[in-house]
Write a protein that binds this DNA or RNA. Sequence first.
DNA 1: AATATTGATTAGAATTATTCTAATCTATTG
DNA 2: CAATAGATTAGAATAATTCTAATCAATATT
Lengths: 143, 143
Amino acid sequence: MTRDRPYSALVQRLKSVGLRPTRQRLALAKLLFEAPGGCDRHITAEQLHSEAVADNVRVSLATIYNSLHQFTGAGLLREVVVESGRSYFDTNITDHHHFYFEDSGRLQDIPGELVQLESLPTPPGGTRVARVDVIIRLNETGE
Amino acid sequence: MTRDRPYSALVQRLKSVGLRPTRQRLALAKLLFEAPGGCDRHITAEQLHSEAVADNVRVSLATIYNSLHQFTGAGLLREVVVESGRSYFDTNITDHHHFYFEDSGRLQDIPGELVQLESLPTPPGGTRVARVDVIIRLNETGE
DNA sequence: AATATTGATTAGAATTATTCTAATCTATTG
DNA sequence: CAATAGATTAGAATAATTCTAATCAATATT
């Protein structure tokens, strides 16, 4: 029973960013990065926890948070905070921005090229730009 | 003792947006909009509560949240969410964007003109743009 | 003018989101 | 192969925010 073969790519991915490929992290990485049908995901901690439970993975919510933050710190994910109690983790780590549908709470990628920022201000002395976030907040029109 | 004279401008301001000028709301509006020394404030609910307490205003934290959201809904404030547990209310409601100092948690206005967004993508059908938020995240360089 | 009625407002209690830390696990060393 | 050290996990604690029953205030009624 070669049970770690299907995970070898993920194992490598985790190791390459300095994270031990533990049972929990592997299971979560699988859900995040190898979800069937497309891979650009915007997922909350709670959602990922539900998916894990549904997939019979025994993992606590605290570990979900730990892992999501570790993955984010390692550059495997990007965190997008849209409103006070609502934080998404984005598996798309390329340079891009977001539409946020305020009514439904849904988030959607905008390819980086479609938002052109010209004339960024100079960052204050002693600082450098870590990231620029653009969120275009949308309302459903009665239409 | 004409004790409501000093508040008349605030009373008007609240009434004009359809909010009753209650004791709590008046006190909070005073702290927010008539703070001594400059008026562009980025304040959290907790901070405002502390200021109110220091100013001997009896008001609960729940009411702070209620009021901040009501003021925001009425267009007197703007909410800026910078990270998961950190939400600021901005007294500057003109079109502008923000620097966020990740190390200190401080927020700073960038005048609207200094960030030029050219070529915004077309909003998806059935939606209209409510607002565009640009947050430039900064790190302190060792320097 | 006093009281009743209705809806707005407040704040204690409850909930939700997130973090902390002690216990557990894993890798390495002797 | 046990001991040690450090990483990882998850239950418990905390922090942030919201809910809802009680309170307050405005208007209507007498």
